[in-house]
Structure formats: C-alpha cells, structure tokens
Amino acid sequence: METRIHGLRTLAPLSFRRFAGAIADVWSVRGERNGGGFYIAPDPRIVIFLGDTSPPLALRTGADRTEHRGIQALYVPEGVPLWSRIEAGHEKTHLDFHLQSGGLRQRLAAANLRPDLSRPRLLGPCPTLTGLAQMAADEVRAPRRGDMLIDALFTATLAEIFAPPPQPAPPTGALAQERFAAVEGYLRANLTRHVPVAELARVAGLSESRFAYAFKQLRSETPQRWQARVRLEAARAMLEDPTRALADVAYATGFADQAHLSRAFRAAHGMPPSVWRRQVSGTNPGGTVQDNR
C-alpha cells in the first residue's frame, strides 16, 4: 500500500477491527484547505464519511481526470489510485473497510450479485448507508457483540453499495421476471434477517396485496413460503463447509437460532443438519449419530 498525505492532523487514535477476511478502521482528522493526499493499495477499499453531509473534498480515481464533489461513500478497487483535495478546512471521521478481493466476490456472489468490481463507485449522501456506517464505527471503537454484528453491518453495507436499485414495476401490476430477479437479489442480500412481504413489495414497486397475488401467479407459492425455502437452501449450501458452525449458518440465513434451523431442516429433509452434513461429506462418525441441534 502507498499513501501520501499533507494538511491532515489526527484528532484521535486510529481504531480498527479484524473480522471475516476484512479490516474495519475509524479515522478522525482535521483537514486544512488545499491539503489532501494520494492512496493506492493491492486490495479493494470502501470509505464512508460519517455525519449528515459530505465533506468539502474533491476526489478523483483511476484514469478519470474529473474531480467529483459531494461524495459520502466510495468503493476503490485494488490497484486503482485515489486522489483527494480539501477545499475547505473541516473535521471529519470516516469508516474504512479494507477487503480481500476473493472474499468480496464470494460474499456478493452468495447474494446473487456480480457487479463489475474493477470500476470505482462514488456515492452521494445516503442516510441508510451512513447510518449503517455509524453503527459499524461504534462497534469498531467499542466491541459489544463479537464478530456477528460487525459482519452483519458490513453485509448490509455491501448491499447498499452494490445491489441494483429497484426499477418501476410493469404498468399492469404483474410481477415480470426481471422484477422477480430484483426481489430475489434483495432477499439474498438480506438473508441475515426476515424480510417482511411489504418490504419485498416495495422492491417490486407494487402494493403488498398486489405483490402477494402477482407473486403466487408467477411462482405458484406464497412469498412467505418462497422466502423460507430460499433461506433453507442457502443454509444447506453453507452446511457443505464442514468447518462452519451450525450457529453461524443459522445466523447467516436469518434463523432465530441453531435450534430453529434444525427444526426447519428436519421438517424439510427428514434429518437434522448435523446428520445431513456427515452424509454429504462422506464421513463415518463411527457409532451413534449425535444430533447437534
């Protein structure tokens, strides 16, 4: 990594946190007019400026010679240079996620998202994104919930940055296939929590009642049953990794706890997930099978 800065004074010690193939850090500085810097790294990076307004910065990335202003968050791919120029003295705090390229692609692919990660992304003010960043920054400074909370906030941040925005629904009120794809992508980006039908309907651009009717016409099942099936299928795919704890799989797929996952899995497959995992992996427990619910 190469960094060159000038006209910046640190206001507080750097806070950082390692988790699941990423590093989150929080940096508070005083920037002087005409200060700024240069940054380039072999790994991708997400930067989110905390607060209600974007800082008075001019930013440019890569070969783009245009300076961009009003930026609240940005994604910088690996090997892409970033220049910043301070246009007015100010104090700012920003949250950075330093990522591993392979891990980022894997996370996005698991949510059925395959964006062009070679292209920088510069985003204007987004209250949802800055709210997530503030919660993540608080967790970096004073950890309260282990890695589960910071990892969930990071996943939600990726959804805000990379998930495509909802498109207007067809005028007939029907749920076209491309609208269903947007709904599915949104659900997979939010697997760690139950998504209400009303929220899925907003993604599709339909009222809740119209969405429920159109969904069943298209898929021959209710949105609730479909969501439960998608979560269970995602859990089953994660269970193929023998090193992944059942509690972690349950959390990552929106089940209340490990016991909730075990009950749902047994109802669908006729056996608890611990037994299914051993059968899939081909291992022989050498005796009575223990139900690790």
Rank of each mutant, 00 (worst) to 15 (best):
E2C: 07
E2P: 00
T3V: 15
R4K: 09
G7R: 08
G7T: 11
L8Y: 03
P13G: 06
L14G: 01
S15R: 15
R17H: 13
R18K: 12
A20F: 03
A20N: 13
A20M: 05
A22F: 11
A24Y: 07
A24N: 00
D25I: 00
D25F: 08
V26W: 09
W27R: 14
V29R: 13
R33E: 11
G35S: 11
G35C: 13
F38P: 03
I40H: 06
A41E: 10
P42G: 12
D43K: 11
P44V: 10
R45L: 12
I46H: 02
I48V: 15
F49G: 04
P55F: 08
P56S: 12
A58V: 03
H68K: 10
G70I: 05
Q72T: 07
L74K: 04
G79P: 10
V80Y: 02
P81Q: 08
L82T: 07
W83N: 14
I86S: 07
A88E: 14
E91L: 03
T93E: 12
H94M: 08
L95H: 02
D96P: 01
S101G: 13
G102L: 10
R105E: 11
L117C: 09
R121G: 11
L122M: 14
G124W: 02
P127L: 12
P127R: 13
P127V: 09
T128F: 14
T128A: 15
T130W: 04
L132V: 05
A133V: 05
Q134A: 15
Q134G: 08
A137K: 01
D138R: 15
V140L: 04
R141F: 02
R141K: 15
A142V: 08
A142P: 00
R145G: 01
D147A: 12
M148G: 04
M148L: 10
M148D: 14
A152Q: 14
F154P: 00
F154D: 03
T155V: 12
A156W: 11
L158W: 04
E160R: 13
E160S: 09
F162Y: 05
Q167V: 12
P170H: 13
P170I: 00
P170A: 08
P171C: 05
T172P: 00
L175P: 00
L175S: 02
L175H: 05
Q177I: 09
A181K: 13
Y186H: 15
Y186D: 07
R188A: 06
R188F: 14
R193I: 05
P196A: 08
A198Y: 06
L200M: 13
A201H: 05
A201Q: 07
V203S: 03
G205E: 03
S207E: 14
R210G: 07
A214V: 00
E221C: 14
Q227L: 09
R229Q: 13
E233H: 11
A234H: 04
A234Y: 01
A237M: 10
A250V: 03
A252W: 01
A252G: 00
G254W: 09
G254S: 06
F255C: 11
A256E: 10
Q258L: 09
A259V: 12
H260D: 14
H260N: 11
L261G: 08
L261P: 04
S262T: 15
R263D: 11
A264H: 15
G270D: 08
M271P: 01
S274C: 06
W276G: 03
W276K: 02
R277N: 00
V280H: 12
S281V: 07
G282V: 03
G286V: 05
T288A: 09
T288H: 10
D291L: 01
